[in-house]
Design a protein around this nucleic acid. Structure first.
Lengths: 270, 270
DNA sequence: CTTTTGGTTCCAATATGTGAAACTTGGTTT
DNA sequence: AAACCAAGTTTCACATATTGGAACCAAAAG
């Protein structure tokens, strides 16, 4: 529930501001009144008002006249459907994730990195039917989740630095790595080892193994994790699953590459 | 696969144009190159170029430098997650839909009306695991689906007129109602009967029963349908499920109302 | 009845967005 | 190679949309 997104950064033009407002509305997890947004102090009254109006009659926001409040609009859901299908790994990965889920019988997460945060794009629950969208689209911290660390570990130094700067290093549990230095050391270990653990760093009792999904050129596409609880299993037991997960990750990567770059073999560099 | 969204309508300011571009990119189901968009003729070169840049570095679009193409960006997925949780019926309806799915063992759809189109916000497959997001967020025609007609039938005249104007009346099958008049007659019948059928109007072999989800004041919140095939069942058999579906719809409506308007009883009118 | 709170509209100043045309860039053709 | 495209990028004078302080209005509170 703790969030704290550290502002978006540069804002280009009116469009940038409008999207900023959209984020403001979305990030409060509930319908917001005009005043709530105004109180944020990011925009003057009239400006905010106009932006809200524009977004509303574009369907990006929904205005509830009874409660006089704004909420993210359904047009976003429509657009996101396209985004998910086209830009995420999920559609490509699905069959492989299914197979993995069937094989290991534990909760699987498929994630990508977005703006320095972990974005879950697909999920399989242990036994019960999939939890849909309510899980896909969710974001989480990168520095204290298995998938997050797995991706960070293979980032290029420049990219890593920029991502690192965005981490809040909030101490969720006693095991949370709460400094860039601690994280850097951990990332080196992960890179050496080839996979990441989550040792109850985000939620007490929750542990996982995670592997990055890498292109042949070692560019990070996403990450895959198997999650369980300390009550049910141990890190050592989870580690036994690594080969299976690695295989799945490799298949996904291969397919993603051949799907996005139909032919490209003779070309050398990145 | 046939689509044909009849343009968005009024475009307010730069933001409107930017969102238009976003739609253009999203509506092609694949990565698009600059020229493809330019060919659409909606915007002059330089303008389109700038809009694309803005959207891209806002994360609303993703640019693939290798293929030189644009696709909807992951920021949309993040935003849509909020939208789905806050503005859709799905989170409220979930337990009820689950129960219904367990009871009837057929495919269930939960839909809402958006811009004159049916927007599926949740789905349960008959037995096999849910088909995820690839279904939630999908849009379909209103005039030839069970959920669509169920919602249209309870719309206020003014609203109905505006929705009607947006229908393409494409003839998907021999049974598709392909004129406003035919549809109006059908809607009257549906209103009288209390529920809607889909008699293979959208896809051959696919039939369903659908009921609207209405507030106490008969305002349309969404619709719920049970779908099957002519091979497996008949309309008459589906009709037997109506009481069960009606009950589910009522529960969802009740919860939606009490959730969105915590207390409000003495107030008279709409 | 006055005041406050929350929301909407005005309007002149100006920052922003516009788009025709000129310019690169990288790949073809002659 | 030189000449030629086509696709993508940048420029720049001009127009327009955006800005935000302040005035305004409505409904609730005092």
């Amino acid at each position: 529930m703790d969030d704290g997104l550290p502002a978006s950064g540069a804002q280009d033009g009116t469009v940038g501001k409008a999207l900023d407002v959209l984020d403001m509305v979305a990030s409060k997890g509930r319908p917001v009144r005009f005043t709530d947004l105004l109180a944020e102090g990011r925009f003057p009254k009239a400006t905010l008002y106009r932006l809200l109006q524009t977004l509303t009659n574009q369907g990006m926001l929904a205005f509830d006249p009874e409660r006089q409040s704004y909420a993210p609009g359904m047009r976003l859901v429509r657009l996101a459907h396209s985004a998910w299908r086209q830009s995420s790994l999920a559609p490509i990965a699905r069959p492989h994730v299914d197979a993995l889920a069937a094989a290991v019988g534990e909760t699987i997460h498929l994630a990508q990195l977005d703006t320095g945060q972990v974005l879950y794009v697909d999920k399989r629950n242990a036994r019960q039917p999939v939890e849909m969208f309510s899980q896909a689209g969710k974001v989480g911290p990168a520095y204290c989740t298995g998938v997050g660390k797995a991706m960070l570990a293979w980032l290029e130094p420049a990219e890593l630095a920029s991502v690192l700067a965005r981490q809040s290093f909030h101490r969720f549990t006693d095991y949370t790595l709460d400094s860039p230095e601690a994280l850097m050391a951990e990332l080196a270990a992960i890179r050496a080892r080839g996979f990441a653990f989550d040792r109850e760093e985000h939620e007490p009792g929750i542990i996982c193994v995670a592997l990055p999904i890498l292109t042949r050129g070692e560019r990070v596409l996403g990450a895959l994790s198997v999650t369980s609880t300390t009550a049910r299993t141990t890190l050592t037991a989870l580690e036994a699953l690594v080969p299976r997960i690695r295989d799945t990750a490799a298949r996904i990567a291969a397919e993603a590459e051949s799907w996005r770059f139909p032919e490209q073999d003779t070309k050398g560099g990145r």
